[in-house]
Design a protein around this nucleic acid. Structure first.
Lengths: 376, 376
DNA sequence: AACCTTTTATGAAAGGTTTTACCGGAGCGA
DNA sequence: TCGCTCCGGTAAAACCTTTCATAAAAGGTT
């Protein structure tokens, strides 16, 4: 860890508990008590101390406090990618919003932790936090393992964990519903857009990518439709990635009548490419995404997609972590429901409500029930 | 500060430098040296210590390190509002992206700090950071003043500061350009949407709001057009705020031919209301925003606006702060340029490039030059 | 072998807080 | 008056690391 090396701005030594004790004519212990357990002291003494503290502008040193209590009141959110890309991604924005709503109400700080000089492990070691929410990284990941050893509690989101709590959404069920919709519409030539992943995940269809792909595949099997390997394309989780992937497939002669994208942003990219090629959506091409990012509703046409409760994932994970920190609560595996959201990029099949539930999903309320049920 | 109270997850006492020293048969000082200044030790000793450390899974305690060195390697970003609203706001997302790009490359952590139980002051006191980037808060703000006393360096963004560096954009110039465009298009009945602000700022037209309003007013004066007080409406910086404000003005009989909004999101809200009322944009109503958030380009019609380099503000502020921390660099006042971006919510006036520069603005490169120039 | 100079390693202090154990005194009942 | 409890407060240890001054070891000279 490099960080800063130079000297402090001004030479103003910070006022410490000793200064306050001196001014108030008491011991440092008394000052500490005045702040943390005023009952133990005579009322007059307390006010005398508090007055002195205010005059001096005293505030307890967070580092000293943390060192002693082994608690800083800060939670780390561990991302596998540079922070700039994190904040540029609306998915993470929603996720952080969920986490933030909990930390805020508990008066806890939020530290974003990203690879330090390429190494997540170093970043983890240097982070002054009480626990981690880990997103999109498997517990088995080499960089994460040391956490266990250090005894720092963590919760895994969008990943599997044996030794820690985990929060996931029903990726497979959502993917099944998405593929099922297109197959029911009669499509037989569907382009599947999925994303890049580390080799070990690819090999075993692990992680989010694997689960979604499994859902797609299961629907194809149930409809007795073959899913050609050529029809499954891996690309980047960006608008450009989706655009390129569709354009490339088209250029190579593919003529899909529908697109099944494992992420909204790729779906929107594919729509852009399709429109450029003169295709009408949904008349010539039906498109369905995954995630329901804010842009999905605003895109043209509005994107039919699988909604997943992104902010809720953050909220649930954070509550779990805090409980583990506070009470050493039990490990849990939470799976939140997903939901099919019919918008304009697919043809209306019935005159039912535009928002219909996925068979395997459920309402948000059910999601909370799942959480509660699992809590015992 | 409440935070956690309970016991640590497992009883596994963390491995300390003493454990490593014991295992390697050396003193704790030697272990410290092995990590921080290996040259001082014999090579064989170093490897022996490092091996022991690895076996034990040792990592230096960040809190102890921070306490001793008076440095944690974490920067705080101070927001005047709950964290959930922060991450929900694309403006802040861009801003954080800029900050993050710098902290990341320096291996520094990023802590978001928001009011703790309603009090920013308490949040500030409890935050384990080396310095703050303060956004949208005046240095004179009662909650911020204690920072000075505590000797924690900070940089103010979108606010004025006497005793600290500040980073702002040319709000007034941008606003002038926006108003000027509409006035040149011949509009005489313009609805101005501005936002709520604390009373003291309102009174003196301080802060971002004041500067933008000043720019609008100056243009009106230059065009010898009166700006009626009724035509300046204060509302919330949300889509709903802009929608409501326009609808209300309309309901009260106002029939503006153009809208001058001090923020994109309000402009988009106003467009929504106008479309609902059957107005065509830009034929019946020209609209211009401010900020150039991502949504501005995606809205329908695409919003003409004043671009401000949001991410750059974050980057510049962070570099300034780090320099002050490292070298105690001098205070600076940076003003970054703004830029008029012509899109679809205003009528095309000429066949020139769709992006044209504001007289008082400049390119990004010029922005950097300003920074550099000011650095001496 | 004695002495000097480097090199290598250590002891102890410092950094600021919280907390445990304890102490002196006051009040009270016997 | 003795002995007990309770109150208000304090001393000192503990949290873990880094660093300064210094000691010990190693190596080289005479």
């Amino acid at each position: 860890m490099k960080g800063f090396t130079g000297a402090m701005g001004e030479g103003v030594r910070r006022v410490t508990i000793h200064d306050v004790a001196g001014k108030a004519g008491v011991s440092t212990a008394a000052v500490s008590h005045a702040f943390n357990d005023p009952e133990r002291l005579r009322a007059t003494t307390v006010t005398r101390i508090l007055d002195a503290a205010r005059d001096l502008g005293y505030a307890p040193n967070p580092h000293a406090r943390a060192l002693h209590s082994q608690r800083v009141g800060v939670l780390g959110v561990l991302f596998p990618q540079p922070i700039a890309t994190v904040f540029a991604n609306p998915f993470f924005a929603s996720f952080l919003e969920g986490i933030g709503s909990v930390t805020d109400e508990r008066g806890i700080g939020l530290l974003t932790v990203t690879p330090l000089g390429g190494s997540l492990e170093r970043a983890i070691a240097a982070a002054p936090v009480d626990g981690f929410v880990i997103i999109g990284l498997d517990e088995r990941h080499a960089e994460v393992a040391p956490l266990r050893k250090r005894g720092v509690p963590f919760v895994v989101v969008d990943g599997d964990a044996e030794t820690a709590s985990s929060v996931n959404v029903d990726d497979e069920g959502g993917a099944y519903a998405a593929a099922n919709l297109l197959l029911e519409h009669g499509h037989r030539d569907i382009l599947v857009l999925t994303f890049h992943a580390p080799p070990e995940e690819l090999a075993k269809d692990l992680g989010v990518r694997g689960r979604r792909l499994r859902g797609y595949r299961r629907a194809f099997v149930d409809h007795a439709v073959a899913l050609d390997d050529d029809a499954v394309v891996r690309t980047f989780v960006t608008l450009e990635g989706g655009d390129m992937a569709f354009a490339k497939a088209w250029a190579e002669g593919a003529r899909p009548t529908a697109v099944l994208a494992a992420s909204d942003i790729m779906a929107i990219g594919a729509m852009r490419a399709a429109k450029r090629l003169g295709l009408r959506i949904p008349e010539d091409l039906e498109v369905i995404g995954f995630d329901d990012i804010p842009l999905a509703a605003a895109s043209d046409p509005a994107l039919t997609t699988i909604h997943q409760p992104i902010a809720d994932k953050g909220r649930v994970a954070t509550r779990l972590l805090i409980r583990e920190l506070d009470e050493g609560g039990p490990r849990e595996r939470i799976v939140l429901p997903t939901e099919l959201l019919l918008r304009e990029s697919t043809r209306a099949a019935s005159k039912k409500s535009r928002t219909q539930r996925v068979a395997k999903g459920g309402t948000e309320r059910e999601g909370k029930r799942i959480l509660k049920a699992a809590a015992h």
